[in-house]
Design a protein around this nucleic acid. Sequence first.
DNA 1: AAAGACACCTGGGAGC
DNA 2: TGCTCCCAGGTGTCTT
Length: 273
Amino acid sequence: MPELPEVEVTKMGIAPYLQGKSIREIKVRQPKLRWPVPDLIHQAEHTIILSIKRRGKYLLLETELGCIVIHLGMSGSLRILAPEINGQKPPEKHEHIDLICSDNTILRYKDPRRFGAWLWQEKGTYLSVLQKLGVEPLSDDFTSRYLRHKLQHKKIAIKQALMDSHIVVGIGNIYATESLFLARIDPRRPASKIKLKELTLLVDKIKQVLTNSIKQGGTTLKDFTHADGHPGYFAQKLEIYGKAGEECPLCHEILQTIKLGQRSSVFCPHCQK
DNA sequence: AAAGACACCTGGGAGC
DNA sequence: TGCTCCCAGGTGTCTT
């Protein structure tokens, strides 16, 4: 499930193959994603990919006329088919979109659950989904003071607040679970009740976990052109995510699982207060 | 304004 | 082995 590190690694993986290339054609085999793929996306055809950026979990392919905005949802992945490496493989099941460059390099999008999105943001206009996003967790704007300000009237659990992209982007269930464990904060606590000192530690752990994860993913970049379609990132080394019922790595008590905002949450009742 | 529920979708695992 | 059931997950939108 792609969270910020996976999207960042994807960006780094595909950028060298796409930057400066001309888009010959965008082939949409399955337009029914989270939102229908807009016809206007074809405006990107015959333009140059100027740069590839990331905002939250969105990838932005910038052209002269606007931006192709890609979200991987929870099962989406991108890979590169380069003519000299793996040629022109026919698309397989769930490979919904090809972005074909004039030199025959293909950016191929696969998304079995179709929770992802391909959108078009015309130059000078702004998609509301992008406008509403909160701060980047790895930027200097993401501080304990910012969090305290955003959370001061929030009664929801701190874990849900961390996963709210209007507050801070890119943190999903995995990294929210992990960073709260590392900061030893109980995920159920009301967001407004977390002390500034705890928020400082939490912000620090979030940045640390995301940075480490990007570093690990960066070692597997070559996989973006592997013929088997491996998306180029692997399960990261996680402390407690997905380990309910196992022992806490710190105190060896049994890790508990609860539902917070319809999402399962693992935590250690002994270490996280 | 804030919080909770819900929808979207498919693969995979559990249980029978 | 094969069927059914349930769950996972991101996030916008609708309801309370």
